[in-house]
Structures are given as C-alpha cells and as structure tokens.
Design a protein around this nucleic acid. Structure first.
Lengths: 200, 200
DNA sequence: GTCTATAAAGCGATAGAC
DNA sequence: GTCTATCGCTTTATAGAC
C-alpha cells in the first residue's frame, strides 16, 4: 500500500467526517428518519459533493455499520488477549456495546423492513464483517456452553441474536432519558438482566 | 349508552377494519415506513374517506396502540383471576405478548425519535391506557419482588421497561424468519432468556 | 361520508458550471 | 471535486362534486 498523498489524506478525512455524522444521526433517529440533507448540513458540504463519495443513502449507512463492526472486532481482539473465561469475555463485550450505545455512537440496525435491509444483505464488506464477528462470537459462545457458563438449552444462534439485540436495546435509552441513574449503573443493571435474568 | 343505529354500526365496523390494517402494517414495517396509501388500499376506501375518521397518520397509529393496550389490559384482568403467583402472572403475560408478536399483530413502538412519539405523549387516551397498564404491572412486580420471585437489585421501573421491550424484541422476528423453530419453541426460549438469563 | 383530483412539502439523486 | 439549482418522485393532507 503506497503512502497516501496529502490530497488523499484530506479526502479520507472528509469521508471520516461524513461517516461520523452518519453514525451520530443513525444512533439518534435511525435510517428512515435520517435525511441526506441533515448529513451534509452537519459536515458542511454540498449534497452533490457527498454523492461523489457515496453512491446512495444506503451506502452511507453501510459505511457506518462497517465501521462499528470493525470497532467491535477490535474490541473482540482486545478481549481475546485478556486472561478471561469465555463467559466473561461475552459479558465484557456486552458492557462495551452498551457503553457505546450510551455514548450515542451505536447506529441502530434496521429492525423492520427497510430499503436498508436489502442493501446491506448484498453489501459484500458489511456481510463479511458481520459474518466474521458472528464466527468469533460463536466460538466464545460454544466455549462458554462447554464450560457450563451459558445455558445449554439455548441454541448458540439464539444467544448470538440476543447479544446483538441487546447492543441496541431500547431499554437503555429509556433509562438514560429518565436521568435517574448513572451510565455505569444502567450498564450493570442491563448486563445483570441479560445474563442473570429478571428472576434470581 | 344508547343502542347504536345500524348506520353507526357500519361506521364502527369500517373504523375497526381501518385499525386492523394499521395494526398489521405497523407490525410489519413500523410507523415511518407505513403509508396512508397502503392503509386505504388494504381497506378498500379512498384516502379522503379515511381522513373523515382519523385526523392524521399519527391519530391512526394511536388508535392501533390504544387497541393493543386495551387487549393487554384484558389479558391482565384474565390472568389476575387465575390462581397464580405474581411472578407466574408476569411470565404468562410475557408469553402472551410474544405470541401476539409472532402472529404479526404487535404494532412496534416508536423506538427512535419520530413524529409519532410527540403525538402519543399528548394523546390522552393512549397515555391513560399506558399508565393504567404500567400501574397494574407495577403491582405485580412489587409483589413478585416481595416474594423473592424477582431480583430486588433491579428497580421495578427497570423490570417494567424490560417487559415492554421484550414485547417487541427483534430477536423474535429474527428467529421466526430463520424458520428453524416452532412458534412455541421460540416463545419458551425467549421467556427463559428474559426471566432466567443467558447464564444458568 | 365517499369519491376523484390535486395541492403542498419533503425526499433522494443529478446536471452542469467552475 | 465542489458548488448551485433543479429534477422527479413519494408522501401527507385537502378541495369540491356527488
């Protein structure tokens, strides 16, 4: 990989700024309510300029999703180096995703049908990162089940989906909006609810 | 209450048909992606006719939300008459909401900011039903905690929000879309995850 | 109340000059 | 590549005849 020229660095920085804005808006209002006009207003460029970088609104969202997936994979790598049991790795990763969400930096997935869903399913880089993450977590889940740290009645698939879903759990934003608890209190209560359940 | 005339009954039936369609569409694609044109197409009436019954798209959604809240309150009443411990009542209600969701009849709440959120907050009937349900469930939660059936480390508010959130948990539709499990299997796995947690 | 037709506004995306 | 200006489409909502 050649050293990027100054000009290329400037363009890269601009793309990063765009993805930053998209990430914030996706976390705040979701894909359907986010408008391209808002994105360019936040970045301070013209709409036509944005479309020189990204071909469509869906591509814009995919870039944000790829970035959060890659950051999550980095966190997975970091946790893999720690001396932790598989269950603890999963728990720590859940804490991390909840903190990202509390910081307003977790773009929400397309829960319902949306033009975004189809676009993401045929987006090669996004699907690659998603499958890579699923594989990594699948290994941790299997190991945790083998050690008795996770319920063996639950198929690994169900555990995986649940962890993904808790990364953008609306309960978190409800509690944060209430303003009654510190961020870390919220994280601990939801991690407890997720792994320990509502009943003792 | 006077006996409704035949004409009034016909109008009521039409309004019910409208709310039916809205409910289906809200469950399927959510508020932002649902269009009024789709609603009138399903019901088979003209758009202007619909606006004689409901003042806005938000009023339309509110009617569907009120109906599901009232149905839930009916189920709460039914469960209150059964000889069950408070924790079992909550668990049974969770099962019921999940079955409603599997049947494609659970309109999804406005998770993110939306024009719907503000409209619902100032909608008297909706807010009344929501608060009534919250009060009823709050009693069950307090009783279950007093009996040791629910974790006392969790504020009742957190338990309540969690139960509301699980009523439209995306994990459910993911598993249903996978087609690998029977509806009742999905319900049991998610009830177990919710009350028992991922770890044993 | 129901219809057809249309207004009014917002949206994603693009043309064309520089 | 960036800008201004605009296209083309969809959407919510309403006017006006019956």
């Amino acid at each position: 990989m050649a050293r990027p020229s100054f000009r290329e660095q400037v363009l890269q920085a601009r793309e990063d700024a765009i993805v930053d804005a998209v990430n914030r808006l996706l976390a705040d209002k979701g894909f359907d309510l986010m408008t391209v006009d808002e994105v360019v207003a936040e970045v301070g460029i013209a709409k036509a300029s944005l479309y020189k970088h990204f071909a469509s609104k869906e591509e814009l969202a995919a870039a944000a999703m790829v970035r959060i997936l890659e950051r999550t994979l980095q966190e997975v790598d970091r946790l893999a180096q720690q001396p932790l049991a598989p269950l603890e790795r999963l728990r720590e990763l859940a804490r991390w995703t909840m903190r990202v969400q509390l910081a307003g930096q977790m773009p929400s997935l397309p829960a319902q049908n949306s033009s975004l869903r189809a676009a993401l399913l045929s987006h090669k880089v996004y699907m690659d990162r998603l499958l890579t993450l699923s594989d990594r977590l699948g290994e941790w889940i299997a190991a945790a089940q083998a050690q008795g740290g996770l319920r063996t009645e639950l198929p690994p698939e169900v555990v995986l989906y649940t962890l993904f879903a808790r990364a953008c759990d609306p309960v978190l934003s409800l509690l944060k909006a209430g303003g009654q608890y510190e961020d870390e209190q919220i994280v601990e209560m939801l991690v407890l609810t997720c792994f320990g359940g509502l009943a003792p």
